[in-house]
Lab assay of single mutants.
Amino acid sequence: TFVALYDYESRTETDLSFKKGERLQIVNNTEGDWWLAHSLTTGQTGYIPSNYVAP
């Protein structure tokens, strides 16, 4: 799992909003700078900017 370093507000319907400190499970990280992730807090799935999270 990864932890959010910053808050992120989604800009498209495929993005995932999250708050700093939220735990995220990475589903697919082969898309370059945008990873498909599942929030362990909200249960939602969407794309996140990879530079906003850390292991």
Rank of each mutant, 00 (worst) to 15 (best):
22 E>P: 00
47 Y>T: 05
29 N>K: 14
14 T>Q: 12
24 L>Y: 01
5 L>I: 10
12 T>L: 12
31 E>I: 13
35 W>C: 04
31 E>Y: 13
36 L>Q: 05
13 E>V: 10
9 E>V: 13
40 L>M: 11
50 S>H: 09
11 R>G: 10
55 P>V: 10
24 L>Q: 00
47 Y>A: 03
37 A>F: 02
9 E>R: 05
42 T>W: 02
8 Y>V: 02
20 K>M: 08
40 L>E: 09
52 Y>P: 03
6 Y>H: 09
6 Y>A: 12
18 F>R: 00
29 N>F: 15
11 R>W: 09
16 L>F: 11
7 D>Q: 03
22 E>M: 04
2 F>Y: 15
23 R>S: 10
51 N>V: 08
10 S>L: 03
36 L>N: 02
55 P>S: 10
6 Y>R: 13
48 I>R: 00
14 T>M: 12
42 T>G: 04
38 H>S: 10
4 A>N: 01
1 T>W: 15
54 A>I: 14
50 S>F: 08
30 T>S: 13
34 W>M: 13
20 K>A: 12
37 A>N: 00
49 P>T: 02
22 E>C: 04
36 L>T: 04
43 G>M: 07
44 Q>S: 09
19 K>F: 06
9 E>H: 09
14 T>E: 11
53 V>I: 09
11 R>L: 12
5 L>Y: 04
47 Y>F: 12
9 E>I: 11
43 G>L: 06
1 T>L: 15
41 T>C: 14
22 E>N: 04
35 W>R: 02
42 T>V: 01
28 N>K: 11
2 F>T: 04
25 Q>P: 00
29 N>R: 14
13 E>D: 14
46 G>I: 01
45 T>A: 07
50 S>T: 06
29 N>L: 13
48 I>W: 00
34 W>T: 07
22 E>Y: 01
19 K>D: 03
13 E>F: 07
8 Y>C: 04
36 L>R: 04
13 E>C: 13
10 S>K: 12
38 H>L: 15
17 S>M: 05
27 V>N: 06
40 L>P: 10
33 D>T: 10
7 D>V: 01
7 D>L: 01
14 T>S: 13
12 T>R: 14
38 H>R: 15
7 D>N: 07
31 E>Q: 13
38 H>Y: 15
39 S>C: 02
39 S>P: 00
21 G>E: 03
38 H>F: 15
36 L>H: 04
8 Y>T: 01
8 Y>P: 00
2 F>D: 01
51 N>P: 05
9 E>N: 10
35 W>K: 04
46 G>H: 01
35 W>L: 08
15 D>S: 07
41 T>K: 12
46 G>W: 00
42 T>A: 02
21 G>R: 02
46 G>A: 02
27 V>W: 12
53 V>K: 01
42 T>P: 00
11 R>C: 14
45 T>P: 01
2 F>Q: 04
21 G>M: 03
54 A>C: 12
5 L>F: 03
34 W>P: 06
46 G>Q: 00
54 A>K: 12
38 H>G: 04
10 S>D: 03
41 T>F: 08
32 G>V: 11
10 S>G: 15
26 I>Q: 03
26 I>F: 04
13 E>P: 13
19 K>E: 06
31 E>C: 15
22 E>L: 00
17 S>R: 06
14 T>K: 13
29 N>S: 14
11 R>Y: 09
11 R>Q: 14
48 I>K: 00
53 V>L: 08
4 A>E: 01
20 K>W: 03
11 R>D: 12
5 L>A: 04
5 L>N: 03
6 Y>N: 06
52 Y>Q: 06
48 I>S: 00
47 Y>P: 01
46 G>L: 01
15 D>W: 06
31 E>A: 13
21 G>Q: 02
39 S>Q: 05
7 D>C: 05
17 S>T: 11
16 L>C: 04
54 A>T: 13
50 S>R: 12
45 T>N: 06
11 R>A: 13
21 G>L: 03
54 A>E: 15
8 Y>E: 01
31 E>S: 13
1 T>M: 14
11 R>H: 13
34 W>C: 09
29 N>T: 14
26 I>T: 03
36 L>K: 05
5 L>P: 03
30 T>A: 13
38 H>T: 15
16 L>H: 02
22 E>Q: 06
2 F>C: 09
34 W>F: 11
44 Q>K: 15
28 N>P: 06
15 D>G: 14
13 E>K: 11
35 W>F: 06
48 I>A: 03
26 I>C: 05
27 V>C: 13
33 D>S: 11
3 V>L: 08
3 V>K: 04
9 E>A: 09
38 H>Q: 14
40 L>Y: 08
43 G>W: 04
36 L>A: 03
38 H>C: 14
47 Y>I: 06
45 T>H: 07
30 T>H: 11
51 N>D: 13
55 P>D: 09
31 E>D: 15
11 R>N: 13
37 A>C: 03
25 Q>F: 15
15 D>I: 09
12 T>I: 11
45 T>G: 05
40 L>I: 10
18 F>N: 00
28 N>H: 09
37 A>M: 10
47 Y>D: 03
16 L>A: 05
5 L>R: 04
54 A>N: 07
6 Y>I: 07
35 W>H: 03
4 A>G: 06
19 K>N: 06
39 S>Y: 01
28 N>W: 09
5 L>V: 06
13 E>Y: 07
37 A>P: 00
10 S>Y: 03
51 N>G: 12
27 V>Y: 10
7 D>W: 03
54 A>H: 09
41 T>H: 11
24 L>F: 15
52 Y>L: 15
14 T>H: 14
46 G>R: 01
53 V>E: 02
3 V>A: 04
19 K>P: 01
43 G>P: 01
6 Y>T: 07
3 V>D: 06
49 P>R: 05
43 G>I: 02
8 Y>K: 02
27 V>G: 05
34 W>Q: 07
48 I>H: 00
18 F>S: 00
9 E>D: 13
28 N>L: 10
